[in-house]
């Protein structure tokens, strides 16, 4: 028995090594970041697929676990990989299931997000995450406008203003835009309102939201996406508005523009889905029929 367990452990220890890197590790350089870098090597590293079947089980406390053949999936730091609801578990299991001969970790965005939420590799508190998210408001993409060329000015006005109006009405705040390098002056009340709103998110959805904000480089667009005012394609388009304008006049280069766009879409979609799935709770109540 004991020998079996030992064998299981050695097998397991070697089986799941995690070549993940977390994109927003870059933004907060600290000692722990340096330590993490040692453990989480490049995200582009690939491994041979070492399992055949992927299944889901519901473990203690109603949390869902992923099984690769007979082994339980673990996070990079060795914790048991658990997710709070079935939909997320199925989506993660599907990511593992569709891998062909090698594991391509750069295509497994939901797994990465779950790992980040479970491990919290940079040891951040909720308050730190909220202030990091709010910091994006000061340099929000759609607050910075250009004065020339006229075509781009028109495009920005037509496309960004409706979103800006929407968020100002939805949250009853003033944000404003500016063509100055200093950006607009955001009133303290606005920040206070968003702070309160962000505080209502749980840790998991905050992780996802911060990921989305980092991708879109915009708090406004991220809120529009999470509040279901925009879908992923629209949000990504608005975030890349200037690039789209340049593509229109200079042409599209598939291995740069399309490559970036699909990556951005995939990451943003994963983040948005992660927020939605981890902030909802589904329960089914059945009536008991009485004779």
């Amino acid at each position: 028995m004991l020998r079996n367990i030992c064998r299981y452990h050695t097998k397991f220890g070697q089986a799941i090594i995690w070549p993940f890197s977390f994109s927003y590790v870059k933004h907060v350089p600290s000692l722990s970041t340096q330590l993490q870098k040692a453990k989480y090597s490049s995200a582009t590293a690939e491994r041979k697929k070492f399992y055949e079947t992927v299944s889901i089980t519901q473990g203690e406390g109603g949390l869902f676990e992923i099984n690769l053949d007979k082994r339980k999936l673990k996070t990079p730091s060795g914790k048991l990989f658990t997710v709070p609801n079935e939909a997320l578990a199925i989506a993660v299991a599907n990511e593992w299931d569709v891998q062909k001969d090698t594991l391509k970790f750069y295509t497994m965005h939901l797994t990465t997000l779950c790992n980040t939420a479970l491990d919290n590799p940079t040891q951040r508190t909720k308050e730190q995450m909220i202030s990091a998210a709010l910091k994006f408001l000061e340099t929000d993409t759609i607050c910075y406008r250009v004065e020339e060329p006229p075509g781009l000015v028109e495009l920005q006005t037509n496309e960004w203003d409706p979103v800006m109006n929407w968020i100002e009405q939805r949250y009853n705040v003033v944000i404003g835009s500016s063509s100055n390098i200093m950006g607009p002056q955001i009133p303290e009340e606005t920040k206070e309102t968003f702070h309160q709103h962000l505080n209502s998110f749980n840790f998991w959805s905050l992780t996802g939201l911060e990921f989305v904000i980092n991708q879109l480089k915009s708090l406004v667009l991220s809120f529009a996406l999470i509040d279901r005012h925009l879908n992923v394609e629209e949000a990504v388009l608005l975030s890349r508005l200037e690039e789209e304008y340049q593509i229109r006049s200079w042409g599209n280069v598939e291995w740069v523009h399309d490559y970036d766009m699909y990556e951005l879409r995939a990451r943003t979609a994963a983040g948005a889905l992660f927020v939605h799935l981890s902030s909802e709770k589904t329960s089914v109540k059945k009536k008991i029929l009485q004779d």
Partner: peptide, 13 residues
Amino acid sequence: VSYRCLLASTRLH
């Protein structure tokens, strides 16, 4: 819609 976008974009990327 987000999930469809995730799957399609991942494949194309």
